[in-house]
Design a protein around this nucleic acid. Structure first.
Length: 657
RNA sequence: GCGCCCAUAGCUCAGUUGGAUAGAGCAACGGACUUCUAAUCCGUAGGUCGUAGGUUCGAAUCCUACUGGGCGUGCCA
């Protein structure tokens, strides 16, 4: 049962008599901030004071007198300005725990009104290897899928793979001009990836050459602007003088920006010019950028050769991506790539045109939306479609196919404006009942506080990231095992298996435990730490419970069925019990605003409660058989909750570590 | 220029949508092992919640201005 939902239902009956809509007031019932105030607190009396023209403490007393809570709570107490403090009755807790022991769902109810969700996440480009930028979308989307599904919603996970864009034009061009046949035979994906990078480098080289003179000119103009501003006489007025100085600062900043742009442009030129072979390639492929676009256009137009190459490359690329998903233990219901929607794009634009929702501007078909300066372009002046077009087509398809109540896009925050426009356009198009939500997230930073890149300046590959985490986890696991002193307990195979669960778990957990909207600093040392809010700590808590069962030769299945009584004599026992029963609340919180970090916080609190219980309440050497059995059941519930909770995060537990 | 986001302990981060004395972990310091896994636990210290105003019974949270940072900004995705 969901404790908060139950309490709110009880309060609603009373508050309905006082106000028209108690929704906001009910949101003010929450877990107590401090254990000394009880288990839960209701803060709704204070805001009612003005509205009802009565003292808040009197209102609180009035509410309390009308509440029907006797079965669930001790008599409520009114404190401070009008807080209503609630303490759950032990009998009530015991009844819930007894149910949880027998219940596969750990007493977590199914939602009253299931919805249909489409969740769009991960969405890598098949032509490029997956990199660090893909973890957050993949891991957050997967966690939301698992959690919402468990809560009883119908969830369709759809990996909107980039398999149709310019990157494929690059690969095709590269394959036609630069392929190394032997390498392609041996390792096709590695070779395609090399070709992608090569073509990309050459394209950037020529772009840079074109851009450099412009940048130099810009630099001259901006430096002149600084001097001009500096030469202006300083106004006598202090505020105006300050403003003038600030203007100089801003202009100087722009000079710095331009200088940096020149530096990175020069680096791109040097990358090619340092190698005679590369330079020769660049010289003989001067029109490469246009040629790549043409290869892409030919593919889209159904050119036989390009189509054949695409069909040959795509499965190989997808296989490679699948390897990463296998390692991450992530599955999708559907993986309709962008190419899947190609046939619909022209119709989408036609429909917008027919219904006068769009119009031509500077040769492009544009949808002008209220509140946006720039229009959303759905067809370029050269006739090609854009990702806005295919995103619209995707919405149309999903509505036809699944009729979702809500579509979630788990995509980084930089695309928020695109989604704002997309959602506005979808509404304009007639999807007024559909809820569309951009579940955005921040950037993964390196320890220097800047976006996580290799020394060469490219995003860190996802595979190598996983390798590194698992290697480090192996060192931790094997090291910890050796340190026990009584010889190595774990076999080599076990160590490897544990290291895999720990390493992959650490990466996922580090990501999910941060508020998704903020950037976070990626650190192997922190994520693999054995203490603190890490997957490793949670996995360790789980393994310790298992250790008790092993040492005590406990048949936990038998104990569950035997319906042994749980007792809450010790403070630590009661605290643990209450935490266990908050699982449903925590999951509801995750679903509320799609925030997996609320689940990691919960699991960490649970593990801490368990650690205290573990210190203070000896299980196997309990005073008597009844207490021993009670505590074993509390251990069992803890282990099951941790396992289930980590499972929602896509993280596995290990029986020993 | 315009738009969006952010600023909390030395460091990395929470903060349940306006509630009681702002919390964790790391690092620092002090304690607890003939152990149920010490791979742990307990304690101490650490804060002008970027600055200045405002809203009200009550603000890290809402509003305004400022400072500093990130991102986006008409034909990439």
């Amino acid at each position: 049962m969901n404790i908060l939902t139950e309490l709110k239902a009880r309060f609603r009956v009373v508050l309905d008599q006082l106000v028209d809509d108690p929704t906001d007031l009910l949101a003010m019932i929450r877990p107590a901030q401090d254990a000394k105030f009880g288990d839960y607190q209701a803060n709704c009396a204070m805001p009612l004071a003005k509205q009802l023209g009565k003292a808040p403490r009197d209102i609180a007393a009035d509410i309390v007198s009308k509440l029907n809570l006797a079965d669930m709570c001790e008599p409520p107490e009114i404190a401070g300005p009008g807080f209503i403090n609630l303490q759950l009755k032990n009998e009530w807790l015991l009844a819930r725990l007894a149910h949880a022991v027998q219940d596969d769902r750990l007493d977590v109810p199914v939602v009253a009104q299931p919805k249909t969700y489409v969740i769009d996440y991960s969405s890598p480009n098949v032509a490029k290897p997956m990199h660090v930028g893909h973890i957050r979308s993949t891991v957050i989307g997967d966690a939301l899928t698992r959690t919402l599904r468990f809560l009883g919603h119908r969830v369709i996970s759809d990996n909107h793979i980039g398999d149709w864009g310019t990157q494929f034009g690059m690969i095709i061009y590269g394959y036609k001009h630069f392929v190394d046949r032997d390498a392609f035979e041996r390792e096709p994906v590695a070779e395609l990836s090399r070709l992608y990078r090569l073509v990309n480098t050459l394209v950037e080289y020529h772009n840079s050459r074109k851009r450099l003179p412009q940048l130099r000119q810009e630099l001259g103009e901006r430096e002149a602007a600084v001097i001009a501003q500096q030469n202006l006489p300083l106004p006598d007025d202090k505020a105006a003088a300050k403003k003038a100085k600030k203007a100089v600062g801003k202009l100087e900043e722009k000079v710095v920006q331009t200088k940096e742009a020149i530096k990175s442009t020069n680096a791109k030129l040097a990358a090619v010019e340092s190698g005679p072979e590369l330079l020769a390639m660049a010289d003989s492929h001067e029109q490469i950028a246009a040629a790549v676009l043409e290869e892409t256009a030919k593919l889209h137009a159904g050119d036989e050769e390009n189509q054949r190459l695409w069909e040959e490359f795509l499965p190989k690329c997808r296989e490679e991506i699948q390897k990463v998903y296998d390692r991450l233990d992530i599955e999708f219901d559907y993986e309709y790539g962008e190419s899947y929607y190609h046939a619909r794009l022209a119709q989408v634009v036609d429909d917008f045109e027919k219904r006068s929702l769009s119009r031509e501007s500077e040769g492009a078909i544009c949808v002008f939306l209220d509140g946006f300066k720039a229009p959303m372009i759905i067809r370029k002046k050269d006739g090609a479609f854009l990702y806005a077009t295919s995103d619209l087509a995707t919405i149309q398809f999903r509505m036809e196919q699944w009729k979702p109540d809500e579509i979630l896009y788990v995509v980084d925050h930089r695309q928020s404006e695109h989604f704002d426009k997309l959602f506005a356009a979808a509404k304009l198009w007639g999807y007024t009942d559909l809820k569309v939500r951009h579940v955005s997230f921040g950037t993964v930073l390196g320890e220097d506080g800047k976006p996580f890149k290799t020394r060469a300046g490219v995003a860190v590959g996802l595979e190598s990231l996983l390798d590194e985490a698992v290697d480090r986890a192996y060192a931790v696991v094997a090291g910890g095992d050796d340190a026990k002193g009584d010889g190595t307990e774990l076999s080599e195979d076990e160590c490897r298996e544990i290291a895999n669960a720990v390493g992959i778990g650490a990466i996922k957990y580090a990501d999910l435990s941060h508020n998704r909207t903020s950037d976070y600093v990626f650190s192997y040392d922190k994520m693999l730490a054995l203490t603190g809010n890490t997957a490793t700590y949670m996995q360790y808590s789980y393994a310790r419970v298992n250790g008790i069962f092993g040492r005590g030769k406990v048949d936990i299945q038998e104990l569950r069925m035997a319906k042994r009584a749980i007792e809450l004599a010790e403070r630590a026992e009661r605290a643990l019990a209450l935490e266990l029963l908050r699982f449903a609340d925590a999951l509801a919180d995750v679903a509320e605003d799609y925030r997996p970090n609320l689940l990691t916080t919960y699991l960490y609190d649970l593990s801490k409660s368990y650690a205290q219980f573990f210190e203070q309440c000896h299980v196997l050497k309990a005073q008597n058989e009844t207490t021993r059995n009670s505590r074993l059941l509390l251990c069992d519930l803890t282990a099951r909750t941790i396992k289930q909770g980590l499972n929602f995060l896509g993280i596995n537990v290990v029986e020993r570590m």
